[in-house]
Design a protein around this nucleic acid. Structure first.
Length: 449
RNA sequence: UCCCGAGUAGCUCAGCUGGUUAGAGCACCUGACUGUUAAUCAGGGGGUCCACAGUUCAAGUCUGUGCUCGGGAGCCA
């Protein structure tokens, strides 16, 4: 038996039909109809319609029922009845009602609101059914991530958030003072540390928040987001791709299994998710470029501050949103694009032995404009080649001594990838903006609430 | 950072080629109703028209600058 308060939850009402119960929660909506008051109560697990009929309660209780406002907190006692007319399916014939607190002028009305207003009231917006459902799916996605790795021989190895240098040397980082040691930066990836972990424990994953100070303001970017990064010793790119597919399939199927109700609230077309089963699609970068050329998809580049369309798409350029979305329209499942040009990818990616112009990298793009869900690669395990890349990118060699040590002492082929939690939640829920996929989003120009 | 758009009631918005007293729906308050589903009906209160400067007899409306917000691009997960 639990040692803490054990009270009736709305999601468990089906077990107690005919019984008198006491619910505790908040008023989601309220309608008066003369001698009848309908109160929609929510307690975090569901909603239940509480019916207060004047002839069934004391005058005092009925007056209380008329006084309550949206989001007031209550405890309600009554007999449970299944009723098709009730949202949630169950109704409470109220015999007693206690007001815990009357909410005055709750800002979020039953009508529509603009995004700016809702973001300013994010702490209250979380109470609405859509946001509630998205957060439940997010929790399920995270549970699926942990179950998947914990159940297949991986060890969780968390990487530091404060780091002494740029991981990939490209992104803009958040900088902070670090005692007498100069500057520290908020981590933008745990991968390099995960590699050390993989050489100690074989198969590891790191899971935590990640920070990017880039000035990106789109509906698929956050400045603070959660990323899970598995790293596997003795995995080559093929193994890496196989794992990425198994992983994404597992997450989607787990959410389908455990979040039916939430997906229904979100009006998500679940047939599209049911279809997310292996095998996914795969294509090399070079073949993808051929497809872009064949379909006359150009690249738009800024030359002298002017947008210029270049066609045919030149081999060697990275894909942007236009190319990704056009390319993915042909697929109903994720597609992995692999073997990207060396120049557009990070220094630690392993060069393909038969063609040094490309690296053993993979990006998994999601269908339905989900964008890039996963980025990963086989890592460069050759000491000389890695050092050469560090020098070519003008990275501070001293800072990477420990990383080079991994190639000095028992280097082995290894691979890994990173999956963005919020991007995955956005895809699965069909949320229109990534800021809805994390409780308190951090974006350029927004750090409140 | 660049490009585009928007700031008018607590919220969502309308407000014409500048014209005298500023509009609607919702929310809120009062009243009516035993079955409401964003209830409905009747009545009521509610405004620094983002800020500053300018043009004009006259600015919510036109011009400039700034601020805030939204959408897109690049970068990425």
């Amino acid at each position: 038996m639990s040692r803490y308060k054990d009270y009736q939850l709305i999601e468990k009402l089906s077990n107690v039909v005919g019984n008198e119960v006491t619910l505790r929660g908040w008023v989601y909506n309220q309608r008066g109809k003369g001698k009848l008051q309908f109160i929609i109560l929510r307690d975090g697990t569901g909603i239940a319609q509480c019916v207060v009929f004047r002839d069934n309660v004391t005058e005092e209780v009925f007056e209380s029922a008329k006084r309550i406002t949206q989001e007031s907190s209550l405890s309600v006692t009554g007999v449970v009845r299944a009723d098709e007319r009730a949202p949630g399916g169950f109704e409470i014939d109220v015999t007693d009602l206690k007001i815990i607190q009357i909410a005055q002028d709750y800002p979020i009305a039953k009508k529509e609101h603009g995004d700016a207003f809702l973001m300013k009231h994010r702490h209250l917006w979380l109470r609405s059914s859509r946001q509630h459902a998205i957060l439940r799916v997010r929790a399920a996605v995270i549970k699926a991530i942990r179950d998947f790795f914990d159940g297949s021989g991986f060890t969780l190895v968390d990487s530091p958030i404060l780091t002494p240098n740029a991981c990939e040397g490209t992104s803009t980082l958040f900088e902070t003072k670090y005692f007498d040691l100069g500057s520290a930066y908020l981590s933008q990836s745990g991968q390099l540390y995960a590699e050390a972990g993989a050489f100690a424990l074989g198969r590891v994953y790191t899971f935590g928040p990640t920070f990017r100070a880039e000035l990106s303001s789109t509906r698929k970017h956050l400045t603070e987001f959660w990323m899970v990064e598995p790293e596997m010793a003795f995995f080559d790119l093929e193994d890496d791709m196989d794992l990425a597919e198994d992983f994404v399939e597992y997450i989607v199927q787990y959410v389908l299994k455990t979040c039916r109700k939430e997906l229904e609230i979100l009006e998500r077309d679940t047939t599209k998710l049911e279809n997310i089963k292996r095998p996914f699609y795969r294509m090399s970068y070079t073949d993808a470029v051929d497809w872009l050329v064949k379909n006359d998809i150009p690249i738009i580049k800024k030359i002298d501050n002017q947008d210029v369309e270049i066609r045919p798409f030149p081999w060697g350029e990275d894909f942007g949103t236009v190319q990704e979305e056009a390319f993915m329209e042909q697929f109903d499942k994720p597609c992995i694009i692999h073997h990207y040009p060396t120049e557009v990818k990070a220094f630690y990616m392993k060069r393909d032995e038969s063609n040094p112009k490309v690296v053993c990298a993979l990006d998994m793009l999601g269908p339905e404009k989900a964008g890039e869900l996963i980025g990963g690669s086989q890592r460069e395990d050759n000491f000389d080649l890695l050092l050469e890349r560090i020098k070519a990118e003008n990275l501070p060699e001293e800072a990477f001594e420990w990383y080079l040590d991994l190639r000095r002492y028992g280097s082995v082929p290894h691979s890994g990838f990173g999956l963005g939690v919020e991007r995955t939640v956005k895809w699965i829920t069909g949320a229109k903006h990534i800021r809805e996929c994390i409780p308190m989003p951090r974006m350029i120009d927004r750090i409140y609430p």
